[in-house]
Structure formats: structure tokens, C-alpha cells
């Protein structure tokens, strides 16, 4: 990766949106990158939807507000509607097809549907859906190394062996879901 990469994670409260975004931010920091994680904290936070933006850069980060993100991981339909119009051309859009049955309607995006809830359910813990999505994003963009992400997970969850195992498997499944995908320039 070179330059700056930014992504929005968006969905319902309770889907682990903030946690997934923070894990990415921690990992990027561990890799020595500049990082900024900014949540939505407005009234919508109380209304049940949540989103956060993560900016990762090799150099000092300017605006923490991103007009046109280079990536979005949308976990529910309202988030798709909200963020698709602002994505820049060529952006990576990962859609949770377990809850979203419509495409973005844009032809200039790299769009991947991943049934993260079903995958997590099969792994035995529906709460791991956010980790499936995160791994898919990391694998597709290379923003951080998969190995670094796993190491960070161990740091954060080291004491909870069962949770760690399920999340590791979620990472594998997420990566598998985007195998063969080439994101141009890894923007």
C-alpha cells in the first residue's frame, strides 16, 4: 500500500461495526502507519445505526472527514443507500448479502456480495459476521497484512480461547470470499 486509504464501515448498532473498524485501526497502527478512526456520534447513534470511518496513511493524515471514500463495508440496507452515492469511482464496495438483496446500481464500483451472517452462523457464532467482513476487506485491499490482523486479534482476545478460534476461522472465510479479487492499485 502506498499513500492513503480510507473506508467506511456501516450498519446497525450491535453488528460490531465499531469493533471491526477499531481492530483495523489498531492493526494499521501496529504496522507503523498513521491512522484515524472516527465514529458517527450524532443522534443516529441512539437510533440504532452506526458507522465509522478509518483513514490509514503512510504520511500525516489531513482531513478525518472523507467526502468520497475508497471503500465501504455495508452491513445493512440503510447503510447501502446512505454511502453508495458518495463512493469514489473505482471504490471497493463489500455488501452483506445476508441482509441486503439489492445491488448498488452503480457500474463504476468493485462490488462484492458476501453473506456474512450465514457464514458466521455456520461457524457457530453469529457475532463473528463483522470479522468475516473485516477479513474480506483486508484481503481485498491489502491495507494491512492478514498476519498482522491475526496478531492483533490475539493481542485483543488472547485470554478468550474459544472466541479467538471462531474469529480466526471467520478471517479465513472472509478472505476466501474475495479470493481472486484484484483491487486496482490497492487504492
Amino acid at each position: 500500500m502506498s499513500g492513503q486509504i480510507d473506508v467506511v464501515f456501516a450498519g446497525f448498532g450491535g453488528q460490531g461495526i465499531m469493533t471491526a473498524g477499531q481492530l483495523l485501526a489498531y492493526t494499521a497502527m501496529e504496522e507503523g502507519k498513521q491512522v484515524c478512526w472516527i465514529p458517527s456520534y450524532g443522534p443516529e447513534m441512539r437510533g440504532g445505526t452506526a458507522n465509522c470511518t478509518i483513514v490509514v496513511s503512510d504520511t500525516r493524515i489531513g482531513s478525518p472527514i472523507i467526502n468520497n471514500p475508497a471503500g465501504a463495508c455495508v452491513f445493512n440496507r440503510p447503510s447501502l443507500d446512505k454511502f453508495v452515492p458518495s463512493l469514489r469511482a473505482g471504490a471497493l464496495l463489500l455488501i452483506n448479502s445476508s441482509l441486503i438483496d439489492t445491488p448498488s446500481g452503480r457500474s463504476d464500483l468493485i462490488e462484492v456480495k458476501i453473506p456474512i451472517n450465514e457464514i458466521a452462523m455456520k461457524l457457530g457464532n453469529p457475532k463473528a459476521a463483522n470479522m468475516v467482513m473485516l477479513a474480506a476487506y483486508v484481503k481485498a485491499t491489502g491495507v494491512v497484512k492478514m498476519k498482522s490482523l491475526e496478531n492483533m486479534l490475539i493481542t485483543k482476545l488472547g485470554h478468550k480461547k474459544s472466541a479467538l478460534e471462531i474469529n480466526k476461522r471467520a478471517f479465513k472465510e472472509g478472505a476466501k470470499a474475495v479470493s481472486g479479487l484484484q483491487v486496482r492499485d490497492k487504492v
Binding site: Q22, A25, M29, Q34, V35, C36, W37, I38, P39, Y41, I61, P64, I65
Partner: peptide
């Protein structure tokens, strides 16, 4: 501003 309080950075 609110962002200084809310955002996470290293």
C-alpha cells in the same frame, strides 16, 4: 470541536 473528542488516533 466534537471530532477532536470523538476520533481515535495513535
Amino acid at each position: 470541536d466534537g471530532m477532536i473528542g470523538q476520533m481515535m488516533e495513535s
